[in-house]
Design a protein around this nucleic acid. Sequence first.
DNA 1: TATTGTTATGATATAATATAACAATATCCG
DNA 2: CGGATATTGTTATATTATATCATAACAATA
Lengths: 163, 163
Amino acid sequence: MSVSKTIPVAWQRAHDHGQCIAPAINAAARICESRGIRLTPLRRRVLELVWENHKPVGAYGLLDELKREHSSAAPPTIYRALDFLVEQGLVHRIQSLNAYVGCNDPGHSHKGMFLICNDCGDALEIEDKGVANTIDRFASRLGFLLTSQSVEAAGLCPGCQEA
Amino acid sequence: MSVSKTIPVAWQRAHDHGQCIAPAINAAARICESRGIRLTPLRRRVLELVWENHKPVGAYGLLDELKREHSSAAPPTIYRALDFLVEQGLVHRIQSLNAYVGCNDPGHSHKGMFLICNDCGDALEIEDKGVANTIDRFASRLGFLLTSQSVEAAGLCPGCQEA
DNA sequence: TATTGTTATGATATAATATAACAATATCCG
DNA sequence: CGGATATTGTTATATTATATCATAACAATA
């Protein structure tokens, strides 16, 4: 599944995180350790499964994978793990897909946004202070106390426009 | 349910759309007429129900209301009507709530964003070219062809911060 | 090491949200 | 009118998510 050279680097990276799994797990372990919380074997494994999928995966997709090696897994098993990972900012939930994807830059503020391809299903996480700041300004102008924000845009990625 | 005077006007409006139902329906009727599509009695009624709720409502909440007067209504009934209304930009879907809310400004481009109160559940629609344009720029810089975008921020509205 | 409080997981059931598929009507338009 | 298209009815099922209570692992303290 090689990607044309005309496609911007940032998007290519989304297709190429096969090598990102181990570093992501290590980073997660360090973050959890520094926060004094536990990345248990189960949580770690779910995080790996999220990364092993190269696209956003649904909870039940992850559950099926987990069940193969962990027969006691049930919906609450996966949802608890995902809730934990999302709370800690190690995984993002894509609201418009009811799906989960590993965070490229955990430990930071998580004001990212996603570009989601309707064709191949891939999602590119973008760090963008501009959008986040604009939302912050709006909120404070209206007296609204922000706790989270979700910015998702859908369309066609460069690769999928060619077809 | 009066609102403190210290609360910005824009937010108050979200609490005060009791008077907005009829104009919203009329606007919808005009828009559909001009597009040569049919705002059938069923679709019109669902749109009214969306507006009669002063907050985002789920599909099954709407279905329960519709059933009282339309006993044949079933899940497909409400989802079809909602799909139509969303497609036509008369209703917005709030992804993070799986809920629907009337569009304050139908006929326009729908690059709005929502501020959603975690306490009272109300959602304020904001027209904001800044965020939309930033997303557009990002997308075109990456060669991504945008078709839709969803910007949702959650937190506490002014009224709910007082408690 | 007991005890106790806290956090995490197991297990079962069910709630909540959404769609598939096909039949029956209604509406449009030649 | 009559055929094509769009809308609604109907039943069944898929998909996503939580409630609940029991048990196990871990942490802190005495």
